[in-house]
């Protein structure tokens, strides 16, 4: 019997009156990537801090590879690597020096730390920049270096707290590739993110966190089944025929019934894939329904939340815009 890589049982964390984690349960199987999805303030970072032994939980219990974060913090620290939202690298040092230093702190010998640092820098395509000071690095390079520092000790469990927030699409893609490589190497990764697409792409299992609890958990496919892969929005020119259009498109809906907004002439529905948009156009055309606009949207975290919790996520506009940018960039 192997211990789960991460197990949280009823973990509570309060800061005064604020409840950050409200009896959170979680189990992450060894060698998998687990995505923790939720808006700002959902408790994702707090959970990462508990698992990284930075915060002592107010209640409940958490273990990493069977080691209790409170009772055996040193054993936990030997097994984890942490990369946070901010690149915790030293500006005045070179990339190589940063990674080697962390290697030494994982108790690697000097030659071993040097060798491992070179490997990690190579893997993150930072070899050319490795002897430059970090102050000359771009934001994406810093974030990669930060990830590199967490990998240098080869910990079996990596905690990545919103590793791609604020990154440009290309850098995001590179980080994703690295996470996929880690999984191939058998490393367990707990990844927090605000982006559904990111969790979808990287994680075998995803948990949606809200108000310090897990509100849904499953594979990407299971969660998407709940919201549909994409949202199709069709506006007909003649608003009086909105209901007719909705009926015509009903059989394309992957989840719930289409939502018709007669005033705007709009029909919205979750669809299984993007081919549905062409099919919708064909059907409406065949019925002689003139189309004013067709839009296919990726389900946002908001859609997931709306479906799972029946209310909107408090994700701010900026975040949603960033996610949209990332998608556009990736498609290009």
């Amino acid at each position: 019997m192997t211990a789960p890589a991460i197990r949280a049982e009823g973990v509570r964390q309060t800061f005064g009156d604020v409840v950050a984690l409200d009896g959170l349960d979680l189990e992450v199987t060894q060698g998998t990537v687990f995505g923790l999805l939720g808006p700002n303030g959902a408790g994702k970072t707090t959970l990462v801090r508990v698992l990284a032994t930075l915060l002592r939980p107010t209640g409940g219990r958490a273990t990493v590879l069977g080691h209790d974060v409170v009772a055996e913090p040193l054993a936990v620290r030997r097994r984890i690597g942490l990369a946070g939202q901010f690149a915790a690298v030293d500006e005045e040092l070179t990339g190589r020096e940063n990674v080697e230093m962390v290697g030494r702190l994982y108790r690697l010998s000097a030659p071993e730390a040097r060798r491992r640092a070179a490997e990690v820098l190579e893997r993150l395509s930072l070899t050319d920049a490795s002897d430059r000071r970090v102050s000359t690095y771009s934001g994406g390079m810093r974030r990669r270096l930060d990830l590199g520092a967490s990998l240098v000790g080869r910990p079996p469990v990596i905690l990545l707290d919103e590793p791609t927030t604020g990154l440009d699409p290309r850098t995001r893609q590179e980080l994703w590739n690295t996470v996929e490589e880690l999984r191939r190497d058998g490393t367990t990764v707990l990844l927090t993110t605000q982006y559904l697409e990111e969790a979808d792409r990287l994680a075998q299992r995803i948990a949606v966190v809200d108000h310090g609890r897990i509100v849904a958990e499953g594979t990407a496919a299971e969660l998407k089944g709940a919201v549909g892969t994409e949202m199709l929005s069709v506006r007909v020119a003649d608003t009086a025929r909105t209901a007719e259009a909705a009926a015509e498109l009903a059989s394309l809906a992957a989840g719930e019934e289409p939502i018709a907004d007669a005033a705007a002439g709009e029909v919205r529905l979750a669809v299984a894939d993007s081919s549905a948009s062409a099919e919708a156009v064909r059907r409406l055309d065949a019925r002689g329904l003139a189309i004013a606009a067709v839009e296919l949207q990726q389900p946002s975290l908001d859609d997931v939340f709306l479906t799972l919790t029946g209310r909107r996520a408090e994700a701010d506009e900026e975040t949603a815009a960033e996610a949209a940018d990332a998608r556009v960039g990736e498609a290009a």
Partner: peptide, 13 residues
């Protein structure tokens, strides 16, 4: 503030 202390505290040192 830079997160360096978090990293150090998460290491087996």
């Amino acid at each position: 503030n830079a997160g360096a202390i978090d990293r150090f505290r998460s290491l087996p040192i």
